[in-house]
Design a protein around this nucleic acid. Sequence first.
DNA 1: ACGTGCTGCGTAGTATACTTTGCAATGCGT
DNA 2: ACGCATTGCAAAGTATACTACGCAGCACGT
Lengths: 127, 127
Amino acid sequence: MSRSDKDTTDGCDLSTLGRFIRSQRQLAKLSQRELARLADLSDPYISQIERGLHTPSLRVLTSLASALNLRAETLLTYAGLTDNTADSNSDTHPSTEAAILADPALTTEQRQALLSTYQAFIQANSG
Amino acid sequence: MSRSDKDTTDGCDLSTLGRFIRSQRQLAKLSQRELARLADLSDPYISQIERGLHTPSLRVLTSLASALNLRAETLLTYAGLTDNTADSNSDTHPSTEAAILADPALTTEQRQALLSTYQAFIQANSG
DNA sequence: ACGTGCTGCGTAGTATACTTTGCAATGCGT
DNA sequence: ACGCATTGCAAAGTATACTACGCAGCACGT
């Protein structure tokens, strides 16, 4: 039974993500168990991810990224994240948002309030 | 789950993400059902996300972002995407004020309001 | 030969993301 | 007063992400 042909039908993104994770793990000279321990996951799940049997969640991807010393964005792009939303007409100003989000002097509630206010301003201006 | 009981931020991030999505939906003048149809989801799940009962997956977040005309990054940052990899910007904390001041999408009044709010937050934290 | 330890993986189970159905509340038209 | 539509949500179900346990294969050392 040719099971490798079946993969190409609809498991395309998954297997590329998995292959990338596997190559990065091997580059870091880690076994699946070691990576699992670093990322606080189970080893069979690492195996399944690397073979494209599952689409890992956001938490798992960020955990894997930090364990492999990669940027989370990188893994997210390999996963189904559409890298560039086609219409970016209304928000070419993510720098303020990013600054607020990254500001360590704010609490979570303050961050949320500030962002909501900012978003409301932008919406009010454009619409 | 023996040692990982440090989920003290349990409802915190979730409710922040949910509140942001709710505010964006209301700004777009959409009901939960309309947003659900746009994002190809069920309406009760929108409700649950907005109240912070669940952590939506990557697919759901990107779908919501495109339905709300937001950048996927924005929603991802609200979700657990804690961007570490803080290389050299750890001593440039007043960048939020600079970003607000430099943002071309804000009016002068809006700039003043945001800055006042931000400075009030900082004062409240340090005092 | 026989362990002992390591590798990756199959399997069965649990936790949780997500849907279907339906219900109470509000509002608007008759 | 009555429908009738629309809103948000609760409860129960299904799909799937994720884990615990175990097994076969390969390398070492006795």
